[in-house]
Design a binder for these strands. Structure first.
Lengths: 300, 300
DNA sequence: TGAAAATTGGAAATCGTGTTCGAAAGCGGT
DNA sequence: ACCGCTTTCGAACACGATTTCCAATTTTCA
């Protein structure tokens, strides 16, 4: 609220200053947004086209309003990945004198939705859900959360560390998984690559998977992901890799998985399902942690 | 959060300084409260008796936590009807270096009760975790759960139903998404197929994506998934589909997505990230719900 | 391809904020 | 009522935060 009161007394000078820079939105027929909702409306209208960095700022403001309200300009800038001056420029484009002034908008908003907005009614809401689609969505969310919750409970950290070791020491990592596991492997492969870890995603495009794994050497490692029913091509591919003496680490959902016997180390991740639709949340989280562990080990 | 981290590094010196003033609570057997809840507990315990001005401060803190979090010391002092220095003294009595440090408590609390800040819970929980890998895993789980939690809060059920409508009435569904969105689209495509809904996953294998979307007709629909940064091929592909008069529904993470303007209907799903690794849990859950909705509509 | 314009990064300068400190006022005990 | 201790006040100071400005870079348009 202080920000608002302060700005009101200086708005004329502010706008004059901004206009002098020739970038004020007033020139575009916009008036300075006076509330957080107005700002959101302007941002979402899509009529304003920002260059790269300023767009980055807009996206961050959109997604993390409370961080903007509570932080200093330096903190916000770092989190958004831009320079502090960029934030100031952004604020000025909207007709504000500077960041502090602009921040008042966010402070007001956060304060406004407090403490009335504290109603933690997740459970009650779900219980009396009239809409079938919402009911289903809540069921899926529940299944995902249950899967995630189970990770904390019984997680074999020793196996996990062995897996990190094996993968980190590998020459090349082959990522294998089909059907339901494929989304997991694509994300793992993408993330590994983004982190600079060379890897091959065995996707079986062109039915070349067997030939790909035929190239595996004894200094390579296989990261396999497989869920029941185990009727996909994955066990076959892993068996080939096993014959070729590669290290094999597996994420699967039971000891009955045919991959368990082939693996040097394996982790059990059980996903909950709702009405036949199975979550992938836990597998993704564990997989990401694996990637992170490998990167950390390699750069150490 | 910055306040908290800052304090941890200086706490020893802080407490020494406070003790020298002879008013530290440590002398009374109290330890410095580390969270807002702990502070409330101490205040409400009634075991500490403050002189007039300090009591005034305590009452104000109790009743207006958000003002304390958002304001400057001068503003808080004025609202509470005391001098700024009184606030500093109050903070020091509790073992903090000063008001800024103390204020961090309130900022954390406010941010924690704000949707996108909830992953912090997992992070702090993990702070006591000795194993770095476990810490990271917990962070990811926290991010996933925060993402899922946000679905309940603000979900545009109307948009969702329009999306189901459009997809259910489509002749053929094209599923488009690249990079981080690709795992989501692969799972959507797989599930659609398993449920008997004909669809094309535009995966750009062989760089044929443009040719694929060139076949889209006006009775088809596109289900696009895209996250920031929006620098992939997805917008180009969707633009082609748009020109060919197909219905377009989108799952994305902000209004700045270039897909929004091309879409008939879109849903905002914001994923939390942890150390740069972003969750997909919420997008997957929403996507699955979409598939289920389409199947239900078609078989009805 | 080259020139002009727009955008961005970064450091220097400015401004505001929090903290400290000494003096004054209040309070309780003798 | 006096003395000593505690609490409060308010101004000066120092620090950190914000803003400004200019050079470097990127983009745009001819």
């Amino acid at each position: 609220m202080s920000g608002a009161s302060k700005s009101s007394g200086r708005s004329i000078a502010d706008e004059a200053a901004a206009r002098k820079r020739g970038r004020s939105l007033a020139a575009l027929g916009y008036t300075k947004p006076r509330t957080y909702e107005e700002l959101r409306a302007v941002l979402s209208s899509g009529t304003v086209h920002f260059p790269k960095r300023l767009r980055q700022v807009a996206i961050f403001l959109w997604q993390h309003p409370s961080d903007v309200a509570l932080g200093t300009i330096a903190q916000v800038a770092e989190q958004a990945g831009v320079q502090p001056s960029t934030l100031v420029r952004f604020a000025q484009i909207f007709g504000y004198a500077g960041f502090s002034d602009f921040q008042g908008l966010f402070k007001d908003h956060v304060k406004g939705s407090w403490p009335e907005g504290r109603a933690r009614d997740g459970q009650e809401q779900a219980a009396a859900e009239p809409n079938a689609n919402l009911h289903f969505l809540n069921g899926l969310v529940g299944a995902s959360q249950a899967s995630l919750g189970r990770i904390d409970k019984d997680f074999d950290i020793a196996s996990f560390e062995r897996m990190v070791d094996l993968l980190a020491n590998a020459d090349l990592i082959y990522v294998i998984g089909s059907k339901r596991a494929f989304p997991v492997t694509t994300y793992l492969s993408l993330t590994l690559s983004q982190q600079g870890v060379r890897n091959v995603l065995v996707d079986n495009v062109g039915s070349t998977a067997l030939d790909q794994v035929g190239c595996i050497g004894s200094r390579d490692a296989v990261l396999a992901v497989s869920f029941s029913p185990y009727n996909s091509i994955t066990p076959d591919l892993v068996a080939v890799a096993h014959e070729r003496k590669a290290r094999i680490v597996t994420i699967t959902d039971s000891t009955f998985s045919p991959l368990v016997q082939l693996s040097d180390t394996w982790l059990e991740v059980v996903e909950q399902d709702f009405a036949g639709f199975r979550s992938l949340a836990a597998s993704l989280a564990v997989g990401m942690a694996l990637v992170h562990g490998v990167v950390a080990r390699r750069t150490a």
